[in-house]
């Protein structure tokens, strides 16, 4: 592995020594820029009791460019599409180099608690979310039980 910026080393160290409750991020041994992430569904949301698997990659120009994050576990959410891509401002325009892996993962967890169907990525899910809210929540719960084990 070519030299890793100090910043990434420090962040990784802190993620391991001082983990955020409900979130674990482990770097791959052969590529320290690639992380396996496990995220607990926040309580009070339809994703409660689910454990979601994500992948996170720090591009070459990190922290100037945002990390790339994707859900690997199937999830029913208006801002996450079938491929697990996430529509979240801090992952795009509102990224700031002062943000960290930790804060980004917390933002994603927050997105699970409060979906934003007005700015959807998965249109059908968003429609259902707005027009048939109870059923959408029900589906999200079922998917969580089925896939996020």
């Amino acid at each position: 592995m070519s030299s890793l910026p100090k910043r990434i080393i420090r962040e990784t160290e802190r993620l391991i020594s001082d983990p955020v409750p409900g979130i674990t991020a482990t770097p791959h041994e052969e590529n320290l820029r690639y992380f396996d992430v496990l995220l607990d569904g926040p309580s009070g949301s339809p994703y409660e009791n689910g454990v979601f698997k994500l992948e996170l990659f720090l591009p070459d120009d990190y922290p100037m460019a945002p990390p790339m994050v994707r859900f690997l576990t199937k999830i029913y959410h208006p801002n996450i599409d079938r491929l697990g891509r996430i529509c979240l401002d801090v992952l795009k325009n509102n990224w700031s180099p002062a943000l960290q892996i930790r804060t980004i993962l917390l933002s994603i967890q927050a997105l699970l608690s409060s979906p934003n169907p007005d700015d959807p990525l998965a249109n059908e899910v968003a429609d259902e979310w707005k027009n048939n809210h109870d059923k959408a929540i029900q589906t999200a719960r079922e998917w969580t039980a089925q896939y996020a084990k």
Partner: peptide, 11 residues
Amino acid sequence: DENILCGICYC
């Protein structure tokens, strides 16, 4: 001051 840390490069 050794307590100061740059929030971007962590140096």
